[in-house]
Design a protein around this nucleic acid. Structure first.
Length: 493
RNA sequence: GGUCGCGUGGCCGAGUGGCUAGGCACAGCUCUGCAAAAGCUGCUACUGCGGUUCGAAUCCGCACGCGACCUCCA
């Protein structure tokens, strides 16, 4: 496929709220930064959606031939429970509750996060930096902000002076907020005496003597503010201005707004060329969130052991379910939708196998060139995976019809289909063949095959009473037999 | 209250000023000893009311309903 057919790639820049052609500042290199998790508890499905969204972006950029440096951080300090910059550190709180060293909490939930990412076949980023591993860079950035007059120290903490910044720069551009509206809407909160304005945010916080997570700084012992790490680390690995910054919609304000302000205050230039935000996963129309208590862990999802789940769903079913919705739309979770996705995925995967067996006949193209073009067009149109999947299902119909001998296509068309399905299903969508239920227990598999043979013998003798009895008894045990052209297979009900 | 967004067929979900995605479910057919599975085919929707237009579900206005952000959250 030529480069011309692959591009151009358009993405919605949430800073300008427009679809823009993506042109990296230094092709073929692309700098991509995505806000990772705060590792103080298990990730839930909503988190998975965001990381799947940017996995799709990463995969598509790679597929287009870009050399991508993908940085996704781990927040392991500085994220406070209550914000207003007065609450307890999330990780420290969890450490207290679980009676563990904070770094044990960090390790535990970082491991868990990685397990989940693997489960959903989310590719690892190129660099996965931690906030605690970049204290020097963060302290340095605080210094630059102070030097430029946008930060002030108060009682061992350092705050970002938002009103002062807003005098000369656009604050609130990304989230569509106006500084005076923010002022009127901000409620008075106790314990904010140190801040000159309620809009100011901490870039360095003083730590109590008993605080476990603290580091020396020019302002005394403390820890960095939450927003700062992303700015410091993206600058370090991707430069003062880089191509794409992604994250969940809920991070737009204040997190990403603060990142922009910090970078401009410290280094004088806007950090990001294209901002992208993934939308939320909802449950009964409400955002899935840790604070709502309506999230499931991957274990609950796979086992179905949760009050909102009728039964378990495989990770690839969930991934496919998510990719059938555009990343910028909210996606509502429901059992019916998951079950529909499960069936659809089975049909798609069956076709991926069928395409390998197709026999050429004649030289007809079967519309495969256009099909391929439509797939690329869909993905290039702001990562429209639902449309691309719809196109693939058109291909599924073609593949099955060719397989049934109803449509004849040539060798070139078959090769094109093979290549297209492999590229789109595995590389771009990142779906995997899930091992059939029959596969993981060889003793059981052998046993069922004995019964299948017995039934086949009975059928050969036209003893249908016996063959049906075998089938029914296996069904009662949860084993479903399927008679196909190639013989009988089985799976769990 | 402020800002932003959404409302599509039984369900989930794309999309576009006219050529009416896709998946699931459902129906018919094929295959099959039967059933299941599988495959093929069919199934014309866009919250309401006005307006712009030759033509709107698609643009504009109003109404109603819903959500996100404005506090930590992907």
């Amino acid at each position: 496929m030529s480069e011309l057919k692959k591009g151009p790639f358009w993405i919605t820049n949430t800073l300008t709220r427009k679809k823009e052609e993506f042109i990296p500042q230094a092709p073929p290199h692309v700098g991509l930064y995505v806000c990772g998790p705060t590792v103080y508890s298990d990730v839930h499905l909503g988190n998975v959606r965001t990381f799947t969204t940017f996995d799709l972006l990463y995969r598509w950029l790679l597929h287009l031939g870009y050399k991508v440096r993908y940085v996704r951080n781990i927040t392991d300090v500085g994220h406070l429970v209550g914000d207003i910059d007065e609450g307890e550190d999330k990780i420290a709180k969890r450490a207290r509750l679980e009676q563990l060293e904070p770094m044990e909490i960090v390790q535990k939930y970082t491991n868990g996060f990685h397990d989940v990412m693997r489960l959903f076949n989310v590719l690892s980023p190129s660099i996965e930096p931690t906030a605690t591993g970049h204290l020097i860079e963060q302290i340095d950035m605080v210094k630059r902000i102070i030097d430029h007059g946008y930060g002030y120290e108060a009682n061992g903490s350092v705050y970002f002076d938002v009103p002062k910044f807003a005098e000369k720069h656009a604050y609130g551009e990304l989230s569509g907020r106006k500084i005076d509206e923010l002022m009127t809407n901000t409620r008075d909160t106790e314990g904010m005496d140190e801040k000159r304005s309620p809009l100011d945010f901490a870039i360095w916080k003083k730590a109590d003597p008993i605080h476990l997570m603290k580091w020396p700084s020019p302002w005394g012992e403390g820890f960095p503010g939450w927003h700062l790490e992303c700015s410091a680390m993206s600058t370090k690995y991707l430069g003062l201005t880089f191509d794409i910054h992604g994250g969940g919609m809920d991070l737009k304000f204040p997190h990403h707004e603060c990142e922009i302000a910090q970078s401009i205050a410290a280094d004088g230039q806007a950090p990001v060329r294209y901002w992208m935000h993934g939308n939320m996963l909802t449950v009964n129309g409400r955002k899935m969130a840790k604070s709502e208590g309506n999230g499931f862990t991957p274990e609950e999802l796979v086992t179905g052991n949760h009050k909102l789940l009728d039964r378990g769903y495989s990770p690839m079913t969930v991934r496919f379910f998510m990719l059938q919705c555009h990343y910028a739309s909210t996606l509502d979770f429901s059992n019916a939708a998951l079950q529909a996705a499960e069936k659809g995925l089975e049909r798609l995967m069956a076709a991926v196998n069928t395409v390998q067996k197709l026999k050429p006949s004649g030289s007809d193209d079967g519309g495969t060139v256009e099909l391929e073009q439509r797939c690329y067009a869909a993905m290039n149109d702001d990562l429209n995976s639902p449309v691309m999947i719809a196109e693939l299902f058109e291909g599924v119909r073609l593949i099955n019809s060719v397989n049934d001998g109803k449509i004849a296509i040539g060798e070139g068309a078959i090769a094109r289909l093979k290549h297209l399905f492999h590229a789109m299903v595995f590389e771009v969508l990142g779906l995997q063949q899930e091992t059939a239920a029959a596969g993981d227990d060889t003793a059981l598999d052998g046993l069922v095959k004995v019964f299948i043979q017995m039934r086949a013998d009975a059928k050969a003798k036209k003893d249908f009473a016996a063959s049906d009895r075998l089938r029914d008894q296996l069904l009662a045990l949860g084993i479903v037999l399927k008679d196909t052209k190639e013989g009988t297979t089985w799976e769990r009900a």
